[in-house]
Design a protein around this nucleic acid. Structure first.
Lengths: 150, 150
DNA sequence: GCGTCATCGTGGGTCCGTCCAACAGTTCGC
DNA sequence: GCGAACTGTTGGACGGACCCACGATGACGC
């Protein structure tokens, strides 16, 4: 072997899109593991958070707020409803819609997942100082906003 | 509706792991589209880059260097071989292995993808100044290194 | 030498996250 | 009223990452 088996191509090592992908993969794995251990998934957290912040909503608006496809919202809400974390009731004012409300059990689960999530942030950003974490967050927010809002 | 349909939960908006996921998704889409237009995939670039930097190698070491699973390396190399971008020859010294070499067509394709990729970086990091881009890259490198090496 | 264990290429399959297409029921615009 | 637009739901597609099992081969201990 001419070089170490585990050496990474330099072209990748300094390419932002690659680095982001790397970190994102690791982050995903962390979230998946920890959330699974706490009895949840990423979709669950997003939906619960949207419900807690904006109150009851239809599935479609819920999907828009969380960036989850309508069809996937259905499945995730089924899982949440099966554990009584949300309630699905037909909207009397618009019979196409369901009104989704957060139950107290759902709010408790959200808090639990919230704790898990902040712990994940700590682990993910372990090598960074608080100031650097803010720096990183700020830069990412600007990128996300730039590509997201229009 | 109590609030805008498209408002994002604040819990997510300032959570690094969520931001990274957002940016990564957008980056993935960019890479996928542009690479597809140039007749390539992410795996192809990684493999070609590893070959160019470290020279011919077996599929297993190639997989280790690029972080691609052995089985997925097979498929990607099949695609590359079908277009004569790489060459697959049995290793006479170790009959378990194949020696993969980059063809001149492969090297040309790598350069093309390289151009596409740097253009993608520019588009992805559009809202950031050069200094900020270096800042971001540095922070990401530290995170990736911290979670990658051990 | 020989047996055991590791490694290699390959083919199968799983899982998650994202996305699209279609459909029936319903409401809205005009 | 009537067509356009929206809602929930089902079913499926896709890419990326991962895992397992197999036959063939090599490395190492003894």
């Amino acid at each position: 072997m001419t070089t170490g088996d585990d050496a990474r191509p330099a072209r990748l090592s300094h390419t932002p899109s690659w680095l982001i992908s790397q970190v994102s993969t690791h982050s995903h794995r962390l979230v998946h593991e920890r959330f699974a251990a706490a009895g949840g998934r990423g979709y669950h957290y997003r939906l619960l958070a949207a419900l807690e912040e904006f109150g009851p909503a239809s599935q479609a608006t819920l999907g828009r707020r969380t960036g989850i496809d309508r069809s996937d919202v259905v499945a995730a809400l089924n899982e949440l409803a099966a554990r009584d974390l949300i309630e699905r009731a037909p909207d009397p004012a618009d019979r196409r819609r369901n009104i989704i409300t957060l139950t107290t059990a759902g709010r408790r689960q959200l808090e639990r997942l919230d704790g898990v999530l902040t712990q994940i942030q700590d682990e993910l950003l372990a090598p960074l100082s608080p100031a650097e974490r803010d720096q990183l967050t700020g830069l990412l927010v600007r990128i996300a906003d730039h590509h997201g809002s229009p």
